[in-house]
Simulated assay, not measured.
Amino acid sequence: MAKDSASGAGGGVVYGLGFIGAAVYYFQAADTFWLFVLAIPKALIWPGVLVYELLKSVYGG
């Protein structure tokens, strides 16, 4: 049995908190029904876009 099976769980917590924060932000900014519908997909995709833009700025893309 693996003794340190919980050692990789930190990334999931950080992603989860980022998702919740982004979802709250997008829900508060939504004015129409379709913006409410798009709030969840935007919150799911947001961390990936953030990392992409960060790496692009660091490595010059």
Results as ranks from 00 to 15, higher is better:
A6N: 05
T32D: 14
F19Q: 06
V51L: 10
S7D: 06
A39I: 12
W46Q: 09
G60A: 01
G60V: 02
L54H: 07
F27G: 02
L55F: 14
D4G: 02
L54A: 13
L54M: 14
V58K: 08
T32Q: 09
Y26R: 05
V49S: 01
G12C: 00
F33G: 04
P41C: 00
Q28N: 11
Y52A: 12
G48I: 02
A30T: 01
Y59S: 01
V14N: 06
D31C: 01
G48W: 02
A6R: 11
L54G: 06
Y52W: 12
Y26I: 07
G18N: 12
S57D: 07
G12W: 00
A39L: 06
G8S: 06
A23R: 04
L44H: 09
A43L: 08
Y26V: 08
L35M: 12
V58W: 14
P47A: 15
Q28S: 10
G10S: 06
V51D: 05
L35V: 00
V14I: 15
F36G: 04
G8I: 07
V51K: 05
F19P: 09
F36V: 12
V58R: 09
D4K: 07
G8R: 09
P47R: 14
V51A: 13
S57V: 10
G16H: 06
F19S: 04
G61F: 15
A9T: 09
G8Y: 15
G48F: 11
Y26K: 05
S57T: 09
A39C: 07
Y25N: 03
V37S: 01
S7M: 09
Y25R: 12
L44T: 07
S7K: 15
